[in-house]
Simulated scan of single mutants.
Amino acid sequence: MEKPSPTFMALKSVLIGAVALSVLLPLLVVVSTSFASDEQLRAAGGYVLFPTDPTLRAYETLFTSPLIFRALGVSAFVTVVGTLMALFVTICMAYALSRPVLLGRPMLMAIILTLFFSPGLIPLYLMIKELHLLNTVWALILPGLFAGFNFIVMRSFFMGIPSELLEAARIDGASDFRILFSIVLPLSKAVIAVIGLFYAVGFWNSFFNALLYINDQNLWPIQLILRSYVVQGSSLSADQLGVQQAPPPQSIKMAVVVVALVPILLVYPFLQKYFSKGVITGAIKG
């Protein structure tokens, strides 16, 4: 391959820089606005690029507010419990259908069909209602407990594990559960980390299930509050926040955005080294 010309490298650098700036600039505005003082917000018209007199008042209000604290607790519970349960279900099904079984192909086709056809909102709502899950946190967990795409990636990864290794363990008297937990899972840390990240991001960012199934504001996750008070333009009053005097609405809204983003931003760097390896290997094997 020919070495790229200096002109091409310069154009590519400018293009990449422009894309990076278009991503980072809105994020900088959100963070800066959340730290801005009342006077600077009024002078700037609601959005600040660089806070001249930064203050933590908006964050102090959020973390002392019962509404926001409960929402963060609900989101954390749904994300942790939902991710663990979803991983358990996906791992068990992927391992079972990665082995030669009699009913494996019909079940696999049924799972693949879920990638093309959804059950519909009304039947899903009626099912949740009949199971008496309305206004419970389980209505935020159980509908997202299984994803066909994640299953296919994990099954493909399991099928890439040498069958001779599994057969040797079976000859030594190991059961399927022993093979799964002692051999398959230690060899599959990359794909488990990636699928776990997929599920965690999905549970943390989900607000639609809460919008459908949750009427009790005490069970709202942080993303539903983000949608209600940021996207729809509603304002958080002092009574809703549980404080005597609330900071400016724009500062509170941007602080909610930052609080909703930070947990995933903190988790992703620890799983980044597994990301490409898990997805690529799970996609090409089998």
Rank of each mutant, 00 (worst) to 15 (best):
R99H: 01
S228N: 13
G82H: 09
G202C: 00
L27H: 02
M154P: 07
I252A: 01
L224C: 06
L219R: 07
D216M: 08
I161R: 10
V184E: 05
L131D: 07
F8R: 02
A200T: 12
F88L: 03
V231R: 09
F177L: 14
D239P: 06
I195G: 10
F8M: 03
G173W: 04
K189M: 11
W204V: 09
V101D: 07
T64N: 14
L133I: 07
P221E: 00
L67G: 06
K3G: 00
Y199M: 11
T33R: 05
F149T: 01
L261Y: 02
M93G: 15
I183L: 15
L261A: 15
L115N: 07
R57K: 15
M159I: 04
R155W: 02
L113V: 13
W220L: 08
L165K: 10
P6E: 13
A44V: 03
M154G: 10
A10M: 13
I122Y: 10
I252M: 02
N218G: 13
Y59G: 09
L84G: 12
L211N: 15
L197M: 14
G104I: 01
L21A: 03
W220C: 04
Y199E: 11
L41N: 06
K12G: 11
I252S: 01
E2W: 03
T114L: 08
P26W: 03
R155N: 00
T136L: 05
L197K: 09
R57M: 12
T83I: 11
A255Y: 01
I280M: 06
M159C: 07
G202T: 00
I280G: 03
L211G: 15
A43R: 12
K12R: 14
P4Q: 04
L180I: 07
K129A: 15
L108M: 14
D38A: 08
F117E: 12
R105P: 06
L49V: 13
F207E: 15
V137A: 10
A210D: 14
S37H: 04
L121F: 13
W220H: 06
I91D: 03
F88R: 04
L236C: 04
Y229S: 05
G73E: 03
F63G: 12
I183Q: 11
L271W: 07
S13H: 10
I111P: 08
A193M: 00
V259E: 00
M109Q: 11
S13I: 13
V259Q: 01
I112F: 08
S118G: 10
L121T: 11
V29K: 08
V19K: 09
I128C: 12
L121W: 11
V31T: 11
G148S: 15
V262A: 04
L56Y: 09
A58V: 06
S32T: 01
D172C: 13
L72F: 12
D38P: 10
N150T: 00
V74N: 13
F208G: 10
F275D: 05
G286N: 07
A238N: 05
L97I: 14
L236F: 09
N215H: 08
A44F: 01
K253W: 00
A44I: 01
S276A: 15
Q272L: 07
L124S: 14
I225V: 15
G144K: 02
I16C: 10
M93L: 15
I111E: 08
A110E: 02
F8G: 02
K129G: 07
K253D: 00
L142A: 04
I183M: 13
I179R: 13
I192Y: 03
L187W: 03
T79I: 09
K129E: 10
A58Y: 00
S37C: 07
L67R: 03
